[in-house]
Design a protein around this nucleic acid. Structure first.
Lengths: 165, 165
DNA sequence: AAAAACAAGTTTAATCTTAAACTAATTCCT
DNA sequence: AGGAATTAGTTTAAGATTAAACTTGTTTTT
């Protein structure tokens, strides 16, 4: 059985040395895909849940006062329509609650229910220990280098977007 | 208007310094999301196309003899059912062709049509110049560090998977 | 050669995702 | 105050994605 790692390397061989950005990008994507796959498997097998659901719960857990649908959309970096769907299902399962906002009748304040808090705590523990395992070999130095690079790239994207507006 | 960058940083503040792996992972994810968003916009606005379509064409462009559906699935790291759908739409648009394999009647050899080759070449140029722009500030040294880190993480994931089998 | 095991792709049902159009509420402008 | 512009969130239509069940063809085993 051929390893996915090998496939990616095979893919990268076709890319000339000058295009280092492209090379790096493809490596980032393939690594992300693999890690996400692991996280998804864990969430599905152990909690019958998904990554988007987990991420929404995670956002709410970090902001005990709750978030509006729009804030969730920004926080998760997905469209508002997307949040509507995920929140709907989480709400049906009783993990979150959509409270009316007194000052704005269009808006909700979404919060975790006790049930949601409880399940999230368990998920979070498994999630963090999985990532800890996967990133265990990464030194603090490398992590800092990495962080700097990612920040630069994100800055460039931000600038590009601002130019468009 | 609040920047996504700021939202991510806000998110990360809640994470204790010990959990460096988690921190790094969230940074990778948010950076990937932003870059992918840019690529998607470009492909949609300029080619009325999508990233999965582009990636399938890209795989075929690099292997002129063609790939089977299963090979495409491995190459793109997605399920076979997923490939079926994307290939179907690309085929309808006349960008790819599914040729029968003489030695195995279950299998196809998928190749680019001339039309597909032509459009891919144009897309590829835009894609590469976009990534070049986004990664322009990344030094070769940093890129090497990065590559090492990513390789390590992927190794760990591979090992984890092997253990499961 | 027949049965069993396996492999290549497709289908299905569910969730996710997006962009764009839409509804309803709020704010801004004059 | 009253109309215009903006904003919060939903809906819609189409594609992407997955896991699991399935169909058909190939290989292995006995």
């Amino acid at each position: 059985m051929i390893k996915r790692l090998q496939i990616v390397e095979q893919k990268l061989q076709h890319i000339p040395r000058e295009k280092e950005g492209l090379r790096l990008w493809l490596r980032i994507v393939s690594c992300s895909q693999m890690v996400e796959q692991e996280v998804r498997s864990m969430l599905r097998d152990k909690y019958d849940s998904t990554l988007p659901r987990f991420e929404l719960l995670s956002a709410l857990d970090r902001v005990p006062d709750g978030l509006s649908m729009g804030e969730l959309s920004g926080w998760l970096m997905v469209t508002k329509g997307n949040v509507t769907g995920i929140a709907e299902r989480l709400s049906e399962d009783g993990f979150i609650k959509r409270n009316p906002t007194p000052t704005d009748r269009r808006s909700f304040c979404v919060t975790l229910t006790p049930k949601g808090k409880k399940i999230y705590k368990e998920m979070e523990e498994d999630y963090e220990s999985l990532l800890d395992k996967l990133f265990t070999d990464v030194s603090l130095d490398d992590s800092d280098t990495f962080t700097g690079v990612l920040a630069k790239v994100k800055e460039v994207v931000e600038e590009l977007r601002e130019d468009r507006e």
